[in-house]
Amino acid sequence: MNILQRIKNTVRSRSIHVAYVDVGSCNGCDIEVLACLAPRYDIEQYGIYVHNNPREADVLLVIGAYTPGWEEKLAMVWEKIPAPKAAITIGNCPISGCLFDRKGSFVDPPVKKHIPIAAEVPGCPPRPTEILQAIMSVRDSVFANWEEEHP
């Protein structure tokens, strides 16, 4: 691995741009993501920036139980993200549908069926620290050694 690749790895793992989509949640997890931005948890100190544009993002945060309105759109959003990328689901809804996956509802969890997911954060809602930990672990496993794995 040459010096240029080393620099690329370092920069990629120190500057992560996050885009989030809410595919039908109760808004609880959105507020926990918002709490990550606030000074108490402050994700920008780790070089993670919320930048809601999939074309410029590295990590996609998916929140919610996948309502029918998102059927083709979520995959489109995922495809727009350039190559070193990862998707993280936040909360119970993308994993199991939790409270919304009842008889007669139209949600279609898990989100894993629709786009590849790198990490899932369970909890209803999860703590901001848990969201932060998930993003950090994805950073270490996907971005920090991207150059070796994709020469």
Binding site: S96, C98, L99, D101, G123, C124
Partner: peptide, 26 residues
Amino acid sequence: PAPGAIEVVHAGDGWMPKIHKGHCIR
């Protein structure tokens, strides 16, 4: 209150509750 969040399963000789993350709302 959450469907499928906790299950009591066999663990060795006895029983043990098992929490399913992703269903449990804590």
